[in-house]
Design a protein around this nucleic acid. Structure first.
Lengths: 297, 297
DNA sequence: TCGGCCGATAGATAAATGCTATTAATTTTG
DNA sequence: CAAAATTAATAGCATTTATCTATCGGCCGA
């Protein structure tokens, strides 16, 4: 029964019977039969059938929600029992927005000191992708913007505030200033994240409300790429304060506070709303709370 | 997998492999094998094995909690989907404390008007039994005292306040009064519920704190029995106001308010904490809220 | 219209589930 | 204290269920 529900989850992810079957480690006919069996049990069609996968029926969507919960709980149960016997172990899958990646080490490092048998997989994703991965039980936790876009059945721990800096060479335009305005920043050619990233959308909004426009000379979905350009001293970018600090800026590169407004975004840890949480996730939340309170001081 | 978890739940209820198997509609070896299979999956012993059932290991208790949730959700899913297609249907199992039994009709009647395809099973149970039945998924809702003894993972809707009356004949001692005190009541021979009922324990406490003692001439676990005695005019009892009203008192029987203190107990609907609830349970909660607000005016 | 992709179907096989009958270990009873 | 009864585990067998390989039929794009 639970296996069949996993089939359905895979199908929702992959939107393709063959790939979903692969993901479950079974053949396509097996997955087909599994879904059909579910449909017989429920007495309703769950999947819109054509010669292609055409999405779920309304009933299918509903079953999908229950499936997420039931499958999630059944995995949580296994982990819970395993933790009772062997202490915390297993793999913690986390996805973070690129601008928060540098902060991840601040959580994982003390976590591993406490629980050395837990392994990590960290993905760099957009904030929307993170919520989708959480929904589909593909990650255990996300680190993303909170308080802006509406989010689903999740628990949230605020981590830190994101303040913005113009990162540029001291001899470049504006490079000698102690602070700059968003209006001034909008006049400078920038390296920015691609527009599918929420960070970019936030910066766009700030530039626009300052009467400017975002015409980035260079876009990328990788903070490392942006940073490496900035370090040459020949490019400028807008980055969160924390990541600029963490990556380490050296002369003649400066990180200049941007004001009017001194925009703030809150970044937080997001985990599935489940009571009780899996032991590894609960420990992650505990770690996040520690960080949060230590940064608040 | 889910079936095996149901085996475990049955075992927790029956504390006996054979009876648990019966309850699941399988033979004892099948249930034994099922539990063993679970233990292999989890890599832990779940049940303390002797030649008798000796309870669960700590890990077993933990699995049991998860099992309650997973099995509950899987049933809720089925009902949810069925309700999408056929409207509300099925059977709603409710247990109520005896003193609240008369109130049940106030919920079931408007409920049936709205959802004629739902059938009811109503049990009369003690407040403790009700909580246990809820835990074990043997009922969908309880009507019991709230706010006194601690209760587990449940949602609560207050229904009404229980005020106490001395129910007695007009020509019996105290029968001519407009109100009596608990101290006075303690001097009268009474018909009361048996001491396993919380109502009786509450009354005992009230009598005791008024310096009296409860020496009931007659005890029963059935309100009907108490009521039929009182109606003869030869017996007295202490009953909640609501039930005395509902059952209908005729001359020369009177229901006299008991004061010092004017003790109050809150009765409420109690359902498993599950998000979303099963459709039939959600409708019951809605009905309870209507009652609650109509009585509050 | 043809080739390729996708999901359903058929048939064979492996795995699981569940039953009856029996055994082993206790506990109860006479 | 021995016989009977109770309880859960085990063995062996039958049935059902799950899964695989191979193949078919529909649909889309070239």
């Amino acid at each position: 029964m639970i296996d069949k529900l996993e089939f359905l989850l895979a199908l929702a992810r992959e939107k393709h019977f063959g790939r979903a079957a692969d993901a479950c480690g079974v053949t396509q006919p097996t997955l087909s039969a599994g879904v059909k069996h579910l449909e017989e049990q429920m007495g309703v069609l769950l999947v819109k059938r054509g010669s292609r996968f055409q999405g779920f029926t309304p009933e299918g969507e509903r079953v999908l929600e229950w499936a997420r919960r039931i499958v999630g709980d059944s995995r949580a149960m296994r982990e819970d029992i395993s933790a009772l016997r062997h202490g915390l172990s297993g793999r913690l899958r986390i996805a973070a927005i690129p601008t928060a990646l540098a902060m991840v080490a601040a959580i994982t490092t003390p976590y591993r000191d406490r629980h050395p048998n837990v392994q990590f997989t960290i993905y760099s994703r957009t904030s929307l992708e993170i919520l989708e991965l959480l929904e589909n039980l593909e990650i255990d936790a996300g680190i993303t913007y909170i308080g802006n876009e509406p989010i689903g059945r999740v628990s949230i721990v605020p981590l830190y505030q994101e303040h913005y800096r113009l990162v540029t060479s001291a001899d470049a335009p504006l490079g000698d200033r102690d602070s700059v305005t968003w209006a001034e920043v909008s006049q400078v050619p920038l390296c920015l994240l691609t527009p599918d990233m929420q960070n970019r959308r936030i910066i766009n909004r700030l530039l626009k409300s300052a009467g400017g426009e975002s015409r980035p000379t260079l876009e990328s979905d990788s903070m490392i790429l942006l940073f490496s350009h900035v370090r040459t001293g020949r490019w400028a970018s807008v980055m969160p304060e924390k990541i600029a600090q963490t990556l380490g800026l050296t002369e003649p590169i400066r990180a200049i506070p941007i004001v009017e407004p001194d925009a703030v975004q809150t970044i937080g840890l997001v985990v599935p709303q489940r009571e009780p949480m899996t032991p590894t996730t609960a420990a992650l939340v505990a770690e996040a709370r520690r960080i949060s309170s230590s940064l608040a001081t």
